[in-house]
């Protein structure tokens, strides 16, 4: 990252750890979207979308079609169900590692 410059090499490592550490690819069971997910606990979820995944999401496409557009806060319920399923099937491990 450019604008705010770290002055220590270890900071770059921290950035990688907190931004990318333990992210796992999860495919939606209903569409072609693939996102990266991390679950530190049953209630915690982090979902990293890509432009491509957004383009595939049929639920978001439907929401975009309504007046006023897609409300940014809405999660995709189908994706959330897919994540829950991945947890049940043991594909996605739940738990944090030293705060990340």
């Amino acid at each position: 990252m450019g604008a705010f410059t770290p002055t220590r090499q270890e900071t770059i490592e921290d950035q990688k750890l907190y931004l990318d550490g333990r992210l796992r690819e999860i495919a939606c069971l209903d569409c072609l979207a693939k996102v990266k997910v991390k679950k530190n606990s049953e209630h915690h979820t982090a979902v990293q979308w890509s432009d491509e995944a957004l383009g595939h999401c049929t639920e978001f496409a439907r929401l975009s079609g309504q007046p006023g557009g897609r409300p940014v806060y809405e999660s995709c319920p189908r994706l959330m169900a897919s994540i829950d399923r991945a947890v049940t099937e043991g594909e996605l491990e739940v738990g944090a590692e030293d705060g990340y």
């Binding site: 530190n40 606990s41 049953e42 209630h43 915690h44 979820t45 982090a46 979902v47 990293q48 979308w49 890509s50 432009d51 957004l54 999660s75």
Partner: peptide
């Protein structure tokens, strides 16, 4: 890119 994060409180 879109990023969602639910904190466990």
């Amino acid at each position: 890119d879109r990023f969602e994060f639910e904190v466990d409180t």
